[in-house]
C-alpha cells in the first residue's frame, strides 16, 4: 500500500453519514455530481478547501448512522487520501475498506493533530507523522486478511480472485 500525504481537515466526534452525504442527494447516480455535495451540511467549504490527497481527521465513532456506501465513496471521489479517527462506526469501516479508501484508527493522532497540519501516513509501517509538529504516532495495523483485501484493491477484486 502507498502512503498518504496532505493537509488535514479536522472534524469532531460522531461525524455521521447524513452529514457526509445528505440523503436528499442519494438518488444521484453520477459519482462526481454526488461528491460535489460531500460534507456540505457540516462544512459547506469542504470541497473548495480540499486538495487531492488531503487527510480527514475525525473524533470518535466517525461514519456513524446509515450504511450508505455513498459516504466513503464521496470522500474517495473528492480526493481524500485517508481518514484518521479515534474510532469508526463499523459499517463505515467495512465500506471504506471494501471500496479501497484507506482509513486508520489512531486515537492519539486523531486527538492531537490539528486542522491545517501537514500529515503523512505510512500504511505499511503503521506510522502517522505530523510534519507540522514533527510528532509521530503508531497506527494499528490491519489484520492479514484485510491487508490482502486492500492490496488487491477491495472486496470485488478479492472475490474475483477467489473464483
Amino acid at each position: 500500500m502507498q502512503a498518504a500525504e496532505g493537509k488535514v481537515l479536522k472534524y469532531g466526534d460522531n461525524v455521521d453519514t447524513d452529514v457526509i452525504i445528505p440523503a436528499r442527494y442519494l438518488a444521484i447516480q453520477d459519482k462526481e455530481e454526488l461528491a460535489s455535495h460531500a460534507m456540505e451540511d457540516i462544512d459547506p467549504e469542504f470541497r473548495s478547501k480540499l486538495m487531492a490527497g488531503d487527510i480527514v481527521v475525525g473524533g470518535k465513532n466517525f461514519g456513524c448512522g446509515s450504511s450508505r456506501e455513498h459516504a466513503p465513496q464521496v470522500l474517495q471521489t473528492s480526493g481524500v487520501g485517508c481518514v484518521i479517527a479515534e474510532s469508526f462506526a463499523r459499517i463505515f469501516y467495512r465500506n471504506a475498506l471494501n471500496i479501497g479508501l484507506p482509513i486508520v484508527e489512531a486515537p492519539d493522532a486523531a486527538k492531537e493533530i490539528k486542522d491545517g497540519d501537514r500529515v503523512k501516513v505510512d500504511f505499511d509501517a503503521g506510522v502517522i507523522t505530523d510534519e507540522t509538529t514533527g510528532k509521530t504516532y503508531e497506527a494499528a495495523p490491519f489484520p492479514p486478511f484485510l491487508q490482502k483485501m486492500i492490496e488487491v484493491g477491495g472486496l470485488v477484486n478479492y472475490v474475483n480472485e477467489k473464483m
Partner: peptide, 17 residues
C-alpha cells in the same frame, strides 16, 4: 447491516467476512 459492496459479494457468493 453492511454496505453495498458487501451486499454485492454476498449476493454473488452467499457468504461474507
Amino acid at each position: 447491516g453492511v454496505g453495498s459492496t458487501d451486499m454485492a459479494a454476498a449476493m454473488a457468493t452467499g457468504e461474507l467476512w
